[in-house]
């Protein structure tokens, strides 16, 4: 079996399928769509349809840069179908930001090609392993911010998304992983962790986004903890770009809150 067979399948045209999950702003009684996170699925009918398997594989192959670029290219092309001015979160490994010196030019090119203004983009920094060039990484973040992009720190509290990363990145958004969100309605310890992250975010001037919100009890618990930006199956599973307009209709639905 030739090496990189799966990587070739992932990178060939049509190998990556982009999907979009809304990030919702929950107000008393209703929610609106604040933006979308662009997610990627690997080739259909393979193990890589699971994003977790896909990106674990990519990291083991140390091909984050190549695949990050491919995911962004397909996501921004598909995002042309989204309403103008829609904010988009795109996932990028910290290792890519540290190693890929041409990333800003690449991203500008991909955004320009698809008529997407840079200020609509939020770079969601993902990292699962420490080895990246710290200075290059921070310099890249500055350049991205200089062009108008915002920065989100993904998976706060897990793996490499720790206090050091928080200090280095000074993110505009802090995304709390589903591990902390699931069962938070009934778990005082999880509520304590979320409360601390929320206070930290306030001190950093950042906004918190709760991931993995799947039921109304969790929405209510998060509201009580001061979080309004939420993402998860309660609002919508990730959908094809062409299905996004229908989400805007459902976003007007009344949400019974206390």
């Amino acid at each position: 079996m030739p090496d990189h067979r799966a990587l070739d399948a992932i990178l060939q045209p049509g190998g990556i399928t982009p999907v979009f999950q809304p990030i919702c702003d929950v107000d008393d009684g209703h929610w609106t769509i604040a933006g979308f996170e662009c997610l990627s699925r690997g080739p259909k009918g393979t193990n890589f349809e699971s994003a977790n398997v896909l990106f674990d594989y990519v990291r083991l192959k140390r091909e984050e840069t190549l695949v990050d670029r491919a995911c962004i290219t397909t996501a921004l092309a598909a995002a042309r179908a989204l309403p103008a001015e829609t904010h988009l979160g795109i996932n990028v490994h910290a290792s890519t930001l540290g190693r890929d010196s041409g990333f800003v030019d690449f991203l500008r090119g991909a955004a320009d090609t698809n008529g997407i203004a840079f200020h609509r983009l939020t770079i969601e920094v993902v990292e699962h392993a420490p080895p990246w060039d710290g200075l290059s990484f921070l310099s890249m973040l500055d350049r991205l911010r200089g062009h108008g992009a915002r920065i989100a720190l993904d998976d706060v509290g897990l793996g490499q998304s720790n206090f050091k990363m928080l200090l280095d990145v000074c993110p505009d958004f802090m995304k709390i992983d589903r591990y902390f969100i699931e069962h938070c309605a009934t778990d005082p310890n999880r509520q304590a962790v979320i409360e601390v992250v929320t206070r930290l975010a306030e001190r950093f001037g950042a906004r918190v986004i709760a991931e993995g919100v799947e039921d109304e009890a969790t929405v209510k618990a998060l509201k009580l903890l001061g979080i309004t930006l939420m993402q998860g199956f309660y609002f919508s599973k990730p959908v094809d770009a062409l299905d996004v307009p229908a989400l805007y209709e459902s976003a007007r639905m009344y949400l019974p809150l206390p």
């Binding site: 799966a6 193990n47 977790n52 674990d56 083991l60 192959k61």
Partner: peptide
């Protein structure tokens, strides 16, 4: 059954 053609694919499956 899940199948893998490469070591890294198998490792990614085992991780999940």
């Amino acid at each position: 059954v899940d199948g893998a053609y490469e070591l890294e694919e198998a490792q990614a499956l085992l991780a999940n």
